[in-house]
Amino acid sequence: MRELSSGPGRVLVAVYAVFAVAATGRSLVQLGTQADRAPLAYSLSLLAALVYLAATSCLLVGGRRGWWAALVAVLVEAAGVLVVGTLSYVATDLFPDRTVWSHFGQGYGFLPLVLPVAGLAWLRRTAPGRASAGAASR
């Protein structure tokens, strides 16, 4: 089994770390200064922050457990960006202010939409069951 944080994984960790910091900062400022303006949107910002933090740490920790935890984090992330992205178009009154995942991450160059796909692709390549296949092909 390849190291989760080496090779392409290293780039992935870097991008996830940036998003973890960005989303954490954003949600803390939003919740700290104007929590009652858009409680749902800001709570989702915080959830996004936690998911990015979890994904970053899991990739860094690595190993079989890290892989499974990373998979859960990335799946939650994918679901989050799809649900929040759709809702921000359909139910605009729920989101008076923007979050990381609003409009499928438009404010962040749609990277929040690309990131879970890249994450899943990387997890697929590093899947514990594929360890022997990966070793044989190298």
Binding site: S6, R10, V11, A14
Partner: peptide, 15 residues
């Protein structure tokens, strides 16, 4: 610098 490979170099681009 922790990984002197192409991927390590790509991290600089991300930064």
């Amino acid at each position: 610098l922790a990984e002197r490979t192409r991927a390590g170099t790509a991290v600089l681009l991300v930064a």
